[in-house]
Amino acid sequence: MSKVFIIVQANEEARSIVEALLQDNPHAVAQESPAMVRVEAEGKLTLKRATVEDLTGQPFNIQQLHVNLISISGHIDEDDDYLTVEWAN
């Protein structure tokens, strides 16, 4: 199976995104590099709006991800409540 990843900036806003990814995707691993965090996982990764909102106590729009996103791999499925990246193989 192939790996997918989401890389975000290492900052306060993106911290809740990383935490939500790790919480909702138990097979995911976070790797820190200077100024960035790379969350990678075999096959599939899902970011859930509700998890981020629970962590921060604030409303979160999935598209807010764009502000701190650095890179992403895999096919994307995005809706109001989630964003999934996945390889079909």
Partner: peptide, 30 residues
């Protein structure tokens, strides 16, 4: 990604910021 992270590692706040700001667009382009 690795080059801009390298810019951060070398204290270049300005380059890492434009680099990651551009790369967030790039991830959309990809």
């Amino acid at each position: 990604v690795p080059f801009m992270s390298g810019a951060a590692y070398n204290g270049d706040m300005s380059t890492v910021t434009f680099g990651f700001s551009a790369q967030s667009d790039e991830s959309r382009h990809m």
